[in-house]
């Protein structure tokens, strides 16, 4: 692979990773926390329902995991495609 092809393949892999990460980001906040809350109302947690927990705790925890996962995956992709800093 030429440098250019490698860079393109790397970018495609990055876009794929971003897409799936944003799906999770959306589901944890807008989905479970807000719009799908009525569907989750049957799942009780600590005196309320799962949607409430996602809105006030779960979404933030998911965001955290997502960012670290993304950083870890990307740093691995950097090495795999040989586009890292060193």
């Amino acid at each position: 692979m030429s440098d250019k092809e490698r860079a393109n393949a790397y970018w495609k892999a990055n876009l794929r990773l971003i897409k799936w990460s944003l799906v999770v980001w959306f589901m944890a906040s807008f989905g479970f926390g807000i719009l799908l809350r009525p569907m989750l109302s049957g799942i009780a947690i600590g005196g309320t329902d799962l949607g409430f927990w996602f809105a006030q705790q779960g979404s933030i925890i998911v965001f955290l995991i997502l960012i670290f996962f993304y950083a870890w995956r990307m740093n691995k992709l950097d090495a795999e495609f040989g586009v890292g800093e060193e």
Binding site: S21, W25, S29, A55, F63, Y70
Partner: peptide
């Protein structure tokens, strides 16, 4: 509950920043 928007909004922006802008 309705003001959970502040909790999600002011933290969820970091996901966008980490993947779409900062690096």
């Amino acid at each position: 509950y309705n003001n959970s928007t502040f909790l999600m909004g002011w933290t969820g922006g970091y996901v966008l920043m980490a993947m779409l802008l900062a690096p």
